[in-house]
């Protein structure tokens, strides 16, 4: 059925489209203007007035970012933690979910209660951090992966997916003499691709964006992910620009901390923005899975 709109409602439509269109621009604009400024010469950017396009086009800011190895090293760490962290999380969390989805599992109730309690109580920040250091995870790549191997919340989502899977799939393999581990890898995991993909994507974004764990636990710059590198660049740019304000001669060169920071931001978010259009619907699906559970 098609609803006919009155004149007043048609006028409302015009305003609605204009308003939402402006909002859409507002969501994109910060990215746009930072890209424009990152391609603009640093001394010129300092004069202000870059709103839409670079005025004095240059690649010097990016040259400065890629000048030393640290950005490549940081990218390597970010990619490594994203890949290893996500695969590890999916594997271990779904193994736990599979075990707990079996009604005949001995001590199932105890195990499950131990899981649920952690959703309501936690040690809080200080004991948690002290614990990580005492475990010897400080200054090690493992600190990006091991504390994230499990999530009770994700476990419950995966478990409800396993519970809904038809039993007949597993039974035929069982008759052939396959053990639970083989069934899990050969039959259950391949059939759970949908739920694993959505949870995996959310985990991957979390790993890609994580910085605070590195900030807390890792002093060694070789182990810094891109996000922490960016945090350091912005923090030093902030203090540098105070110095610049007092002594403008510092910016005599063609790059400034501010413009290097702009280029670093773009280097850090580039991949997310590039893959975002292709994965967007899976992210939304992931959000809905969580919501239905609630």
């Amino acid at each position: 059925m098609k609803f006919k709109h009155t004149t007043g409602e048609k006028i409302f439509d015009v305003f609605l489209y204009i308003f939402l269109g402006l909002l859409a621009v507002l969501f994109i604009y910060p990215f746009w203007t930072v890209i424009a400024m990152s391609f603009n010469s640093a001394t010129d950017t300092m004069r202000g007035g870059i709103i839409l396009w670079p005025r004095e086009f240059t690649l010097n800011n990016y040259r400065a970012v890629f000048k030393d190895n640290s950005i490549f090293q940081a990218y390597f760490i970010t990619i490594a933690r994203t890949v290893i962290g996500t695969i590890g999380h999916l594997l271990f969390t779904s193994a736990l979910a599979y075990g707990l989805s079996k009604k005949h599992l001995m001590f199932r109730k105890t195990y499950f209660n131990l899981c649920i309690i952690t959703m309501f109580f936690s040690g809080g920040m200080i004991p948690g951090v002290l614990n990580i250091f005492r475990l010897g995870l400080g200054n090690s790549f493992l600190v990006y992966v091991v504390p994230g191997l499990y999530s009770v919340y994700d476990m419950i989502i995966i478990k409800s997916f396993f519970n809904a899977m038809p039993q007949s799939l597993e039974e035929s393999a069982k008759i052939d003499g396959a053990n639970d581990l083989v069934i899990f890898f050969r039959i259950v995991l391949p059939n759970a691709k949908a739920v694993l993909a959505t949870i995996g994507l959310a985990t991957a974004v979390g790993q890609w964006n994580a910085w605070f764990d590195a900030y807390l636990y890792v002093d060694n710059p070789d182990l810094w992910p891109v996000q922490l590198l960016l945090q350091r660049v912005i923090a030093s740019a902030t203090s540098m620009s105070d110095a610049v304000a007092q002594n403008p001669n510092i910016t005599a060169g063609s790059i400034s901390p501010y413009s290097v920071q702009l280029a670093t931001i773009i280097v850090a978010i580039g991949p997310i923005i590039l893959i975002y259009p292709f994965f967007q619907k899976y992210f939304v699906k992931g959000m809905m899975i969580g919501a239905i559970k609630e």
Binding site: G99, C115, F184
Partner: peptide
């Protein structure tokens, strides 16, 4: 095999959740 799949998770919970809780 089922137990082997579950028990590492429980050990992890003890190490990363219950010990910090006790740490309060």
């Amino acid at each position: 095999w089922l137990q082997i799949m579950v028990i590492p998770g429980i050990i992890w919970l003890v190490i990363f959740c219950y010990i910090p809780m006790y740490g309060i």
